[in-house]
Design a protein around this nucleic acid. Structure first.
Lengths: 285, 285
DNA sequence: ATCACTTACGGGTGACGTAAAAATC
DNA sequence: GATTTTTACGTCACCCGTAAGTGAT
């Protein structure tokens, strides 16, 4: 058995060709490295160096030893990373969601059940969301439709209805409901991080030029102080105090109402069972 | 970077389940192992043990760590073996020969050229001889026929003519030459280690029951003191003093005369060039 | 003289041992 | 009380550093 530090030193020497340079890299003195290499050679019981007076170099066996040492050192490092990564995976949970509302509403329940873990979330939709769940990037997902994948367990969650807010002076302010097409072509405020809704908006209002706001506060600032129409939703209207001075009109269209589903891999279903029953209660309530 | 001794200790603990047993196997005391495991855990920066008072066990991360440690330790050992084996291969040369005469005659030349190496030889014939050369078990081979394998370099060497020795009272003692069939069915002395000749004998004298002698001295003892016919060859007759009181008659048949070829892999040809030219001189001489 | 390596010696870290305590069965 | 782990403390090995020596360029 050869200790890693010796292999690391051999590997460094193999790269540099001289003890001096290798020692520099290793932050040890050259005599120390010289002794180490002697020790290594002795432990192997085999000559790996050609020495003539003040010249030392690897012989053929030494070359082999150095290349094996290199891979050994690499694997040692990889081992450490893998252990740390695995440990992190045990102590963190990552949720992929197609919608910001889905994750916002779910967060309290997540914290109830995984309070001792690091909870992170990402807004993703479409294929990356599904494959992220399948290959373990996400432990939980929020879809906007039930999945029929046999490997995926899917729990119905809440619904979200899209609204459009307009200033009271807007031509449609008094309507009881509107359609996407009513606003197609009109300038429109849009918050950037809205998940799959973005796709919906662009599809249903192809001629609209959106004024996209990456910052949440700026977005609400503009909603309050400009006359552009903007999206909202029932969830937002309940959860937050929406800017006054606007009318909030539901969009009476199929594409404006989605039901969310919380999902995990079937094989992990058991470890999330308490969590899922909490979701079921929340839905009923 | 985690030193191997720590991984070895972890691996031992994983197998035994208690520090005490593991420490016994490792020939260290239990407190020492306890400290090592603490150190390992600290170096990883991750919990790998569940501890409650006087109970310690691996947690999930620890299991992973232990299995990775196991493979790391194994690879370390394998590395050492490979280095040692490679070094040995550099300092030894193994010759496979289909015939004892081939190797006996070649030995002086081998010693001339590879005197600083360990020279070993094996009597093998047929497929194992060829594949042994191809996969590096033999650096050199002696065939009884030229090889047309494009990967093999083949140098014509000496010939050997098979003789049969009979007591002077034998019915065929005065013949100038004999054939295998002349002796088919007759009891026959046979030295065990004769390489490919064994196959020839059995094929050409299918009805003969051979009295097989594994020991060289016993064989010659019997040759001298019994009346059974036995094989000899021109090479043996030249090299050694054959037992008197016998007639040595050549077998006049194609299957009783072979020319030997010394071979190596083509890719190694250059490192044996001096050796092969010595063979060529020897043949001419 | 400079460069590269080895030898010699000294110091400090740390790996292990011994002893004893703590906790569980 | 037996078993297992931890804590405390001492010791020795050994890894590294400094300094000096050798041989080659």
């Amino acid at each position: 058995m050869i200790e890693i530090y010796l292999l690391e030193q051999l590997e460094a020497f193999a790269r540099h060709g001289t003890l001096l340079r290798a020692a520099e890299e290793l932050h040890i003195t050259q005599p120390a490295l010289s002794k180490s290499m002697k020790k290594l050679e002795e432990q192997l019981g085999v000559q790996i160096f050609d020495r003539q007076n003040s010249k030392i170099s690897l012989n053929e066996t030494g070359m082999l030893a150095a290349s094996l040492a290199r891979s050994q050192v690499e694997q040692n490092k990889e081992m450490v990373s893998r252990i740390i990564a695995f440990d992190r995976s045990l102590h963190s949970i990552c949720v992929g969601s197609c919608s910001p509302m889905g994750i916002t509403q779910l967060m309290p329940i997540l914290q109830d059940h995984f309070g001792d873990m690091t909870i992170s979330s990402e807004l993703v939709y479409g294929k990356p969301l599904l494959s992220g769940l399948e290959n373990g990037i996400y432990q939980l997902c929020i879809f906007n439709a039930p999945s029929d994948d046999p490997d995926i367990f899917c729990q119905r969650y809440i619904s979200e209805q899209l609204y459009i807010s307009v200033p009271k002076t807007h031509r449609l302010a008094e309507k009881k409901s509107v359609r996407f097409s009513d606003f197609n072509g009109e300038k429109f405020l849009l918050f950037q991080h809205i998940g799959f809704w973005k796709e919906i908006c662009e599809k249903c209002m192809p001629n609209t030029s959106f004024i996209i706001q990456p910052d949440r506060d700026s977005f609400f600032e503009l909603v309050e102080n400009t006359d552009y129409p903007a999206f909202s939703s029932d969830a937002v209207l309940i959860a937050e105090n929406p800017p006054k001075g606007r009318m909030y009109i539901p969009i009476d269209e199929e594409k404006a109402k989605y039901t969310y589903y919380v999902a995990c891999l079937n094989k992990n279903k058991h470890q999330y069972s308490a969590f899922f029953s909490a979701i079921r209660s929340a839905v009923i309530k």
